[in-house]
Write a protein that binds this DNA or RNA. Structure first.
Lengths: 236, 236
DNA sequence: TCATCGCTTTGATCTAGATCAATGTGAATG
DNA sequence: CATTCACATTGATCTAGATCAAAGCGATGA
């Protein structure tokens, strides 16, 4: 028996990978694929938690804002990532598409029930939540205690881990190429800085030949050890 | 049949509350109560994840540090809170007692196995982890985007929620009394500020009669609405 | 009762990063 | 191919909060 889950591009990485074929058929009945245009919100801060979803394609930002418009990006979500607040009645954060995206949506109550009946799925969800908690806690150290230079360096290293294009890496070298999936303002909102400070730190790194900037979106790490050093101690 | 869990002061609030009497007997065999003196570490950043625990008595801080000694407090742990990193092989953060404390310790591998065999327990753990994730994400907004005045006000409100002593509240009033379980430096490490800035913000709030400070450890909130306003907009 | 010690507060100054203000750049559009 | 528009960079200045440096407590203990 075929389900649309069989053809899902994230079936092996999303939490669904915990399910066997019968279970996939069951969960498939609860889901629907939805397209979201860049800039469109999937979940609003303060909304009741009515849906949860898997990211299938594209990218999202998870944000929290102050009344006067100051915004902090709390996390980035890529294909196979899980979105939403299961087992809770409010969404405390907004989820907005950074690029044209596709998600596989479930009603939260359907999902909650299904999860409780499938411990392996619940286990996958727990593991993901624990990993995300580690990641968020790491960024608390960054936001609370790191300088602008340290933040930008840490950010570039983290992005290169997530996005490094293996096909571009020079054999035997430590060169790493990647395209940031968003602009400088978003970087600033991730790092808790202003756009100008981010820009200045980037040009500084370029001047010192730690990175190259072929264009505004692309980054090439030239000297990983030095970048690592800056990320952890601020000193070049 | 009696187990020491029967007499445990946190049995109704800790994750163990998901277990029935038979299961309590089983998990009891895996646990041991340990006393930790104030200032002593239970877990070190970077250690292998060999144990997990429930806090039974006292208070702990969860911290992350930079090589040069800058420290960020990532969370506070009170009785019934769960400590440690299940289903992972490294502790990314340190856990240190703020006061003389007692914990109920499990070997991580024992605990991991036991949890996987008891879905209700795993569910409790998931709910706790999701709630903690919400809390940590809220503090990312604080660390990334709030001013010193906003941080201190938010902190006092959060502490009053956690620690407000009902017996001290004036009938019909909105007065709220509580004792901070730690000194100014720790507050600074929670808020990503220096001790001097925290102190200045506190005296400012006192001068404006938003709070009273009977002594260094005790706080009395005199004007909750105004404090709320400062927490969210910075303006008195 | 008065030293001592570990905080906390207060004051003076400095600076990293914000803010304000042009200027540059490159992709999209007529 | 100019024009525009959305970002990014760069420069000049300002300021919130850090840093440096003295005092104030309020416990402890001789």
């Amino acid at each position: 028996m075929m389900t649309s889950c069989d053809q899902c591009v994230v079936k092996n990485k999303a939490i669904c990978s915990a399910l066997d074929p019968d279970e996939l058929i069951a969960i498939n009945r609860l889901s629907r694929k939805v397209s979201i245009k860049a800039g469109q919100a999937l979940i609003w801060e303060g909304d009741d938690s009515l849906i949860v979803a898997n990211v299938v394609e594209g990218a999202f930002k998870l944000t929290s804002s102050l009344e006067d418009g100051r915004e902090q990006i709390i996390g980035l979500l890529y294909p196979s990532d899980f979105v939403g607040r299961p087992f809770g009645d409010k969404n405390e954060f907004s989820v907005t598409a950074l690029a044209d995206s596709k998600v596989c949506i479930f009603s939260r109550s359907d999902f909650d029930h299904f999860v409780r009946e499938h411990p392996d799925l619940e286990h996958k969800l727990l593991q993901r939540t624990l990993a995300e908690l580690d990641r968020v806690r790491r960024s608390m150290l960054m936001l609370g205690r790191k300088t602008a230079a340290e933040r930008v360096a840490s950010f570039l290293l983290e992005m290169s881990e997530r996005l490094a294009d293996a096909s571009c890496s020079v054999v035997g070298g430590n060169v790493s190429n990647f395209a940031l999936p968003f602009g400088r303002q978003q970087v600033a909102d991730i790092l808790g800085l202003t756009i100008e400070t981010v820009s200045r730190q980037m040009t500084q790194l370029k001047k010192n030949e730690v990175i190259a900037l072929p264009d505004h979106r692309n980054v090439q790490i030239l000297d990983t050890p030095r970048l690592l050093n800056i990320a952890n101690t601020g000193s070049a």
